[in-house]
Design a protein around this nucleic acid. Structure first.
Lengths: 225, 225
DNA sequence: TTCCTGTATCTTGCATACGGACTGGAGATC
DNA sequence: GATCTCCAGTCCGTATGCAAGATACAGGAA
């Protein structure tokens, strides 16, 4: 018998969650913005129940903050937050890369090259949002091939924030995107060559430079509602 | 004016979540056991809504599995699961210890000693459940003092599973608890002396030995409902 | 003016109702 | 006896209603 498996239609909760997540990550909403369950449910054309459940999930991903009886707000990171997030992210990514290299070097490399191509395409296309998305995909590759689901889950738990910061706080600095591309190229090269130490240091520099940029923007206070 | 701040009564969701979590972690429920939202809500004396929300949170902690339209089940780890979990746990704990040592050595050491004392008390008292709980607290200390909330969150995301395995899969092997105590003592000593490399290797041995024990029990198949 | 207070209106927390999807078993059919 | 079909029971997904806390603001008292 052929494989006739049908995919289940997504639940409303899943749809709402994805929609809201995209709205936050793609900067359709401002950091700190107030969200009302009722307003959202009306805007989305569903009842409050799935909205509420989706918001609860997003809270666990750190994308919104729910204050009892007051309201729900898009997350608003402090400088310290961003710093800790970067440190944590570096820890996860470096570990994931280590696992990738020892367990699934070939497939991981191929996927990284694909993602890199997508980044180049986005850069050529000139859309900052597309570039940020491709960047996100690139880093997700590490976790798809690391062979440890818990590592991947942990990353998923912060990837929303990372991606959101990328979109909200990235400023089109002179040559910034070019430097980012160059670093990604270097990472792929180091990975292909199996130079783990180099890879670590590039990744560290890459993430910490991003942190600098974010911190600058945060200090300038331009992103608050 | 004196400080008269009142603590907010916990929400029903939080209460239900904690209650269910304890029930799973303390092995009041069997691994793989079926949970019905309605049955739970009746047993707990609340409506399905908070139960449902609590179950969703527990799913994100990996303590239950929700199958759409079918039911909710207490998690049932495979041998592979446990292996990946141990690897991941070692990664997190070793990183947390590193941060503790460089940022909050004194307080962390004090807290570890307290936890150790509690473990000894539990051992003297002879309750396996109390010992397992104290063990859990000991390892949580690392994350309370590591100064990185994301690291702590990531641990919270798996600590339920870790704690549950401790209770479900630990068998009172000859001298097992004594060996565990000895290892914890060694860890505290190494931490106090600032011997990070030793600490790492003790921790690694400690976790991997636990893994061995769990795997044995899993293979024997005694824990399934 | 300044401060307090009552109230209108917002928010979420929780309970409940209904319908669709799944499961297991009794009975019919071959 | 084996297999199919139908049906009742159970579960979840979603919508809706009500209660209670939080907030903002108008209006009165000092």
């Amino acid at each position: 018998m052929p494989d006739l498996k049908v995919e289940q239609p997504k639940s409303l909760v899943a749809i709402v969650e994805e929609r809201l997540r995209n709205a936050i990550v793609d900067a359709e909403m401002r950091l700190g913005e107030t969200l009302s369950e009722e307003a959202l449910s009306e805007a989305l054309g569903v009842s409050r129940t799935p909205v509420r459940e989706a918001l609860a999930r997003l809270q666990l991903q750190g994308l919104v903050t729910i204050v009892p009886k007051k309201g729900t707000f898009v997350f608003a990171p402090t400088e310290e937050d961003v710093s800790e997030l970067c440190v944590f992210r570096y820890m996860l990514e470096t570990q994931a890369l280590r696992e990738c290299m020892s367990k699934a070097r070939g497939p991981a490399l191929a996927a990284m090259k694909d993602a890199l191509a997508a980044m180049e395409a986005a850069q050529a296309g000139g859309s900052r949002r597309d570039y940020a998305r491709a960047d996100t995909v690139f880093h997700e590759v590490f976790f798809q091939h690391c062979g440890n689901r818990y590592l991947g889950n942990a990353y998923r738990g912060v990837s929303g924030r990372v991606a959101a910061l990328r979109t909200h706080l990235s400023v089109p600095l002179e040559g910034e995107q070019e430097r980012s591309m160059a670093e990604h190229h270097l990472m792929v090269e180091a990975f292909a060559a199996g130079r783990l130490a180099d890879l670590d240091s590039i990744l560290h520099r890459h993430i910490m430079r991003a942190w600098d940029a974010y911190a600058d923007v945060l200090r300038s206070g331009e992103v608050r509602g």
